[in-house]
Simulated assay, not measured.
Amino acid sequence: MEALSVLAVAVASGKAGYVFLQRGQLQDWGITVKAAGSSAELVGFAQGLINELRPDVVVTEDCTKNCRKGKESKRLIQSLAELASHNSVLDVSVPRPRLFQSKYEEAQRLAKDHPEIAGYLPVQKRRIFDFEPRSMVLFEALALAQEVMKGPPTRLAALMG
Rank of each mutant, 00 (worst) to 15 (best):
S93A: 13
L49C: 10
S39D: 14
E41T: 13
F129M: 12
K103L: 02
A8D: 04
S39W: 00
R109Y: 12
L49I: 07
A36Y: 06
E41L: 10
A3Y: 04
L76F: 01
V137Y: 04
Q27N: 05
S38V: 08
Q146E: 15
V43K: 12
P95F: 07
K112W: 09
L156F: 11
P55F: 05
P55V: 10
H114T: 05
A158C: 02
G151P: 10
L156W: 10
V6I: 15
G14A: 11
V33I: 14
L121N: 14
G119V: 13
S85D: 14
T60D: 08
A81R: 13
M136Q: 12
A107Q: 00
L26C: 12
L138S: 08
E82C: 02
E106A: 08
A3Q: 09
L142R: 13
N51V: 08
V11H: 03
I128R: 12
G151F: 06
H114L: 09
V11S: 02
L7Y: 03
S85T: 08
P133Y: 13
G14F: 00
R96I: 00
A111E: 09
C63M: 02
L42S: 06
E140P: 00
T32Y: 04
A40M: 11
V59C: 07
D130H: 12
T64W: 04
R126D: 15
A10T: 01
N87S: 11
P122Q: 09
C63Q: 08
I77D: 08
S135W: 03
K65H: 08
K69I: 00
A157L: 15
K150M: 04
L142H: 09
G14R: 09
A40N: 13
D91V: 01
A84C: 02
M149C: 14
K74G: 14
P133E: 11
G151N: 09
A118C: 03
M149H: 07
V6R: 11
Q27R: 15
Q78S: 15
R98S: 01
Q101T: 03
A145H: 00
